[in-house]
Design a protein around this nucleic acid. Structure first.
Lengths: 188, 188
DNA sequence: CGAACGTGGATGATGTGTCAACTATTCCCG
DNA sequence: CGGGAATAGTTGACACATCATCCACGTTCG
């Protein structure tokens, strides 16, 4: 274990049990490394980033390939200014375009362009393959189920009660309901 | 069922089973949300960021509160330029200072300052408390163990074989070694 | 009608991460 | 000794996220 008994140990063990510490460290490292790998892979295999991909997925899943800006923010759990900036950059690259909303003079739609569609169609398979290789090929069915349950529990904690209030986000609705069974939306 | 049969579905299900998709989506959302919460909490409760914290932890854990730049990169699994930039910013805020390395004219040490030490000592307890509240209070002992095992499996996959090669990182040794997590350092 | 307030969204400043050069030193080998 | 090659680290350009602020429009209510 190479437990080197760091000076901090005493302080921390007051809060986290030994097994919890080990789990936390393992999770933090894995998560950081996995994000890095997925991002790098995505930008090597295609011309878009993970963020671009997330936006494009939402647009692709929309019936008419057009989504209001704030709706996008709500779907992605992003801040509205993040969406705004990101869409601006994507627009500059021709992946999407903005369009005014007739019924509400303030609003505007983000619309998928042909270039955007082909970009995501090119990126999706290889991304899914990467996820399968790096994650699911390593896990048993029980572990996959456990991962889902653990993730859902923590996510629920994060999006309900005082936690959600602190965020003061553009209120996303029911945490788990947003995720319709079998929607094929990778969101990742 | 609201199965809207998105265009993507066919594409993705070729690679990921239904249960895998659900698990992946749950994980991705949880992970993004958790990172956001931890970062926000940290910068609200203290004057440092998660990245600052990670660096300070490594310095605190070092016997003489000084670590070589590339050693820091190796420990944190960061790129050297990231370390360089980040240390520059931290130095500007007085959290650390650079010092030339006598034995190797090229190298330099990053040294913890008094301000840096007090910053991390202030931040650590509340961070650990946040992690406990958001994560471990939600999980059973079995789930904690499962989380660790799942994380270790994926992490191992990420840091061995062709994957590790692709990264071409400053080769980190033992996978499960030190992690930028809690620790702090009263004395040392 | 019109003032007050809420909402949809854009913008600019700032901090952060990544990539690709680049400098300076040390190592290695003849 | 000299001349690459590797190593340690920095720098600049760019993509990205966050925050606070701002503006335009809509809603409500007097």
């Amino acid at each position: 274990m190479m437990c080197q008994l760091f000076p901090y140990a005493e302080l921390v063990t007051r809060w986290l049990e030994a097994e919890q510490q080990r789990a936390w460290r393992a999770y933090v490292r894995m998560q950081g490394e996995l994000n890095a790998h997925l991002s790098r892979r995505m930008s090597v295999d295609s011309e878009i980033s993970m963020a671009d991909f997330a936006v494009l997925v939402q647009l692709t899943d929309s019936a008419d390939a057009r989504v209001r800006v704030l709706e996008l923010a709500r779907l992605l759990h992003w801040e509205k200014s993040r969406i705004s900036h990101h869409v601006a950059r994507m627009e500059k690259r021709g992946l999407v375009r903005r369009e005014d909303c007739g019924s509400d003079g303030r609003g505007s739609f983000v619309v998928l362009t042909g270039l955007g569609r082909s970009a995501i169609e090119e990126a999706a398979p290889s991304h899914a393959e990467t996820v399968r290789t790096l994650v699911f090929d390593q896990l048993t069915d029980d572990e996959v189920e456990a991962l889902r349950e653990i993730s859902e529990k923590i996510f629920t904690r994060l999006t309900t009660g005082e936690c959600a209030a602190v965020v003061a986000r553009c209120d996303a609705d029911d945490p788990m309901e947003v995720v319709p069974e079998e929607s094929g939306c990778p969101e990742a």
